[in-house]
Design a protein around this nucleic acid. Structure first.
Length: 900
RNA sequence: GGGCGUGUGGCGCAGUGGUAGCGCGCGUCGCUUACAACGACGAGGUCACAGGUUCGAGCCCUGUCACGCCCACCA
């Protein structure tokens, strides 16, 4: 019942759904992503920044993975043995929070389950979530080596973590101590400095009066956190501050808690700030803690872990920080000890995972001594052994490393690597790679392991070598370390890149990677950050469902200018989808042309999927020789330019530039001109048709290969249709400088200019498409004359002309238009082209319409009431419109004059 | 308070010394046998501002303004 002719029709649009999944499966089945160290090829390696097992991949991952995939595929095609190693991060706090939220829905807390059961539960959750993420990576087309997939908490990596921690301890680079750390009262754990996000809040500065103990007056202090006065143990002033000389060494009576505390002199006090006297709360402020250390002051902790006032806060016990602040101010005001409260915006730290205000808290934690490690990491970048791309991010890195402070690595969580430290009843610490049988110092056998786990970034900091089997001296480590490139967003240079450099340079020198390639963040169409609260997040899966993976990837890469943020909107992806379809149809055209040129029996169709014509010869590895015609020579020259520029851009970590070049060549040159120029030759058949088809086939094959790193699916499908089994392993198009042909490019430019000039004239004068005038070209020189004579047929067709003649200007041909293009003069007889009377009539009607609009506008603007009373915008609009009308009138009048 | 970056047509962006480009949008025309997810043609920019270097400056230098991001223990 189906018409056989119709059956052989190829689908007019590219259908990603039919192609992507089977293609990816085939790549896996054929082991194309598997890295074989024994292959003898040069090696190239990269470790995937492990996504958090939390949740699913977002648009930022899509960018990150696409960027890496372009590098991996590009290098693979160029003949490298590529290892792109995948995996996931256990993501301590983030994951624990997610599972705790899930528990909360059941009305439970982790404490109801107990540590062991809770951790079990997280593992179960991880199994499920991890599966989803792997599926998304397949969707994206990630060419990772699945046989080497790792997880930060798997056995091998856990061993690496213990090895590093214990070694650092032995080297004196890990220590335990009491410090003021950043504490999240909601997550109930310590945080490192970079896990705190500073944010400006309105805030206030309260001026409090502390009466002198001897009743001789008072001293005034200023604070943004009045409630902390409950934990004050001193007041500090600058030693040279004349205002307070007489008070140094005396004592004040701390109101509300009725504690006598000293006035001390400390150089850290700024005389100009506030009153020049500062209250000292050693347990709740890092500066104050240092002052206390210097002066031997006690510390009074007034908060519980949840930041609720404890028993030390007397009658304020039980209030949270904010309630206590109000209550303390009220109480002081009643006593006449609150001088005033003024607004004072200042930055407050928030937990990077839950946004809760961080509370400085004095506690016992584990720290990494970072200075020596940081120095090594800085040296490797300064020397150029490791390079940032773009380079300016090295500055960001240096700036942070310069001011780096010791890294608090212990977390009061349950999900993570348990700290390998054990305590005996006497409090001695034993740090070991395996669970020790007895205390190092006293031999006690009752040991209890530290309850805390390590910062998630501790294990991810080992990623480049722990994933290769370290500390074992594995083949993979020998073959693929240092890794070649590390790709990531600028947002985690401090969190991750810096830590990897510190650990890598120290434990597995010289460096974990040669190049750090930094990309930006995905933004919405207005350049705004994507976030759930703005409601502007885009789900990559939705985009892939709708437009295909290649479209999403191309849109992301096209916007990924080096180091800069990537704006993305549906329309961008839609445009990229149109491009995939353009390629698809280019493929359809070329394949058909090729089949017809060689008289083969047309193309076959696989159900609903792309063309398969293995009966034809495989795509040529080199262009057809001869290359006689201008169109072919021009195309090959442009192709070689593109090939060279795209290759260079890929090498230089500028895939956005490569994308632009490929897009422009494919669409504006190959499709818009080369194909159009080929049509008459193809239609003529014979050797000319074969020549044209061969050149187009070659060009398509090359551009498809160039595009493959960015758009792997549609290009693989087209390459297969052209006769290749796969292009995943290349080859990459070879350099062909002999194809560069400046003469052909110049000639083609002249021809294009002439054709466009005629088209423009036709469009402006509304020449019906069915009218085919005769054109006379008066060339600028003899060379140009030959050009136009040779290309007369192309020009005739593309400009819709009856004939194209090269010679002297026609005499006495009646009304004639003279156009200029590339130095040549083009003469178009108007008679018969457009009906002159009809055209005059049309122009007069148009002029009349414009005149009447003009007189109305003039009248309106001449009316003072309108000009004065109407909104300015309306008046401006009227004026602008009048100007437009005047311009249009002038044009129409000129056209009328041309006709006479 | 430091550091980095950005200001180019309505919107999003390229363009590191030699006659202003791309995508989207917009206007006019067109279902020309690869593609209407298309084609042809067009409108639209004193390249934030002010100085300077140069034969010549979006592109280099200085300063100003605006915006963005990062870092930061002035309570």
């Amino acid at each position: 019942m189906t018409d056989p002719a119709e059956q052989s029709e190829l689908p007019k649009t590219y259908d990603p759904k039919a192609v992507e999944e089977p293609t990816y499966q085939r790549w896996l089945d054929e082991g194309l992503f598997h890295a074989d160290a024994g292959s003898g090829r040069p090696r190239w390696s990269m470790a995937l920044p492990p996504p958090n097992v939390t949740g699913s991949l977002h648009i930022g991952h899509a960018l990150d993975h696409t960027y890496q995939d372009y590098l991996a595929r590009f290098k693979r095609m160029r003949g490298y043995e590529v290892l792109w190693l995948p995996g996931m991060d256990h993501a301590g706090i983030a994951t624990q929070n997610v599972v705790e939220r899930e528990l909360a829905k059941e009305g439970k807390t982790r404490f109801d389950l107990g540590r062991e059961a809770f951790v079990e539960r997280v593992w179960a959750w991880k199994a499920e979530s991890g599966w989803r993420i792997l599926g998304q990576m397949r969707r994206l087309g990630d060419s990772v080596d699945w046989s080497r997939e790792r997880f930060t908490m798997d056995e091998g990596l856990s061993r690496a973590v213990r090895e590093v921690f214990v070694s650092l301890y032995e080297q004196g680079l890990v220590y335990r101590g009491q410090r003021i750390i950043n504490w999240c009262p909601r997550c109930l754990t310590a945080l490192s400095d970079i896990e705190v996000e500073h944010e400006e809040v309105p805030g206030e500065l309260a001026h409090l009066r502390y009466p002198l103990a001897d009743g001789s007056g008072w001293i005034e202090v200023a604070t943004s956190r009045a409630e902390t006065m409950l934990g004050d143990t001193a007041v500090a002033v600058h030693p040279d501050d004349e205002r307070y000389q007489h008070l140094i060494g005396r004592t004040v009576r701390l109101p509300l808690v009725d504690r006598e505390i000293p006035v001390v002199a400390d150089e850290s006090v700024e005389r100009e700030f506030g009153t020049g006297a500062v209250k000292v709360t050693p347990a709740h402020d890092p500066n104050d803690y240092e002052i206390a250390q210097r002066h031997g002051l006690p510390d009074v902790n007034i908060f519980t872990e949840e930041a609720i006032v404890n028993a030390n806060g007397g009658r304020f016990a039980g209030l949270d920080r904010y309630a206590a602040r109000r209550a303390v101010k009220d109480a002081l005001a009643e006593l006449g000890l609150l001088d005033r409260v003024e607004p004072a915006p200042h930055a407050v730290g928030h937990c990077y995972r839950c946004r809760t205000e961080v509370e400085p808290r004095l506690s016992e934690q584990w720290f990494v001594r970072t200075r020596p490690l940081a120095d090594q990491a800085v040296a490797v970048v300064r020397s150029g052994r490791t390079r940032f791309e773009p380079e300016r991010y090295a500055k960001t890195f240096f700036a942070w490393m310069d001011g780096i402070r010791d890294w608090c690595v212990s977390r009061q969580l349950w999900w993570g690597h348990r700290i390998p430290a054990w305590y005996c009843p006497d409090g001695h610490v034993t740090v070991d790679r395996e669970e020790p049988a007895k205390c190092d110092q006293c031999g006690a056998k009752e040991l209890r392991q530290d309850e805390d786990v390590l910062d998630t970034w501790f294990s991810s900091g080992l990623w480049p070598f722990s994933t290769l089997g370290w500390p074992e001296r594995t083949d993979d480590l020998a073959n693929f370390y240092p890794t070649t490139v590390l790709v990531t967003g600028y947002d985690i240079i401090f969190f991750w890149v810096a830590r990897m450099l510190m650990f890598g340079c120290h434990f597995e020198p010289p460096t974990p990677f040669d190049v750090v390639a930094i990309h930006g963040m995905v933004r919405d169409r207005e350049g705004k950050k994507m976030s759930k609260s703005f409601g502007n997040v885009i789900d990559p899966l939705e985009l892939m469902d709708r437009y295909g993976t290649d479209a999403l990837r191309f849109a992301l890469i096209r916007g990924a200018n080096p180091g800069a943020d990537v704006p993305l909107a549906k329309e961008w992806v839609e445009g990229a989808r149109n491009f995939t379809n353009k390629l698809w149809n280019l493929g359809r055209f070329v394949l058909t042309a090729r089949a017809e040129a060689w008289g083969s029996g047309g193309l076959k169709e696989r159900s609903g999927s792309p063309p398969e014509n293995r009966d034809l010869a495989p795509a040529p590895a080199t262009p057809p020789d001869d290359g006689g015609g201008l169109a072919d020579r021009w195309l090959l020259s442009r192709l070689e330019h593109t090939r060279a520029a795209v290759t260079a851009a890929y090498e230089e970590y500028d895939p956005a530039e490569a994308a632009r070049l490929m897009f422009a060549f494919s669409w504006s040159e190959l499709a818009d001109w080369a194909v159009e120029l080929a049509k008459p030759r193809l239609a003529a058949g014979g050797e000319g048709a074969r020549q044209a088809a061969a050149t187009l086939t070659y060009a398509l094959d090359v551009i498809v290969r160039l595009l493959h790193p960015v758009m792997p699916f549609v290009t693989e499908e087209l390459a297969r249709a052209l006769g290749a089994d796969t292009i995943v392993r290349g080859p990459w198009p070879a350099e062909r400088p002999e194809d560069l042909d400046p003469d052909a490019e110049a000639d083609m430019a002249a021809l294009q200019e002439a054709i466009t000039a005629v088209r423009r004239f036709r469009a402006e004068h509304r020449v019906l498409p069915s009218r085919h005038p005769r054109l006379t070209v008066v060339p600028a020189d003899t060379g140009q004359g030959e050009l136009f004579r040779a290309e007369a047929e192309s020009m005739r067709r593309l400009a819709r002309l009856e004939t194209v003649e090269v010679g002297p200007a026609p005499a006495d041909a009646g009304p004639t238009a003279k156009l200029l293009a590339a130095g040549a003069e083009l003469y178009l007889p108007l008679a018969g082209l457009l009906d002159l009377d009809e055209e005059r009539e049309r122009l007069r009607r148009e002029l009349a319409t414009l005149e009447s609009e003009r007189s109305r506008a003039v009248g309106k603007l001449a009316n003072p009431a309108f000009v004065e009373r109407a909104p300015a915008a309306v008046v401006d609009k009227a004026r602008a419109r009048l100007a437009e009308v005047d311009q249009a009138r002038a044009k129409v009048e000129a056209q009328l004059a041309e006709l006479d």
